[in-house]
Design a binder for these strands. Structure first.
Length: 108
DNA sequence: GGTTTGACCCTAA
DNA sequence: ATTAGGGCCAAAC
């Protein structure tokens, strides 16, 4: 297990703490685990998850409230559906999806 | 080993 | 307000 694995582990544990119906940002997760400049690594970590994971990766979006997933195996629509299913309003704008952070951002 | 690549974000213009 | 550029750090190449 390399050093990065430990970082991933902390990322996953923090994402698990985001409650149903709320969202967090990549940078927020990075800051909360004490590695404020690792926002991109949070993306790497979530992308590495297995499809059947219990980590609620769908609750992590970018700083502007946009769904920024880029993954061949999981299209944006999957994340949108998962969020809506737990009560998060997801609007569509010019083919992109966004969430009102003022309402749904997790404030631990 | 180095170089490039992201599910990002801040700053400056 | 919007955008270009650069920094970041683990993985992938």
């Amino acid at each position: 297990m390399g050093r990065g694995q430990n970082l991933y582990f902390r990322i996953y544990n923090m994402v698990r703490r985001v409650p149903r119906g709320r969202v967090a940002t990549y940078g927020q997760i990075a800051a909360l685990i004490g590695s404020p400049r690792s926002a991109r690594v949070v993306g790497w970590a979530l992308r590495a998850l297995e499809p059947d994971t219990k980590v609620p990766w769908q609750r992590v979006i970018n700083k502007d409230g946009m769904i920024s997933i880029e993954n061949m195996h999981t299209p944006k629509s999957v994340q949108v559906e998962l969020l809506r299913r737990e009560g998060v309003e997801v609007a569509e704008r010019q083919g992109n999806f966004w969430v009102e952070l003022n309402h749904y951002l997790w404030r631990p």
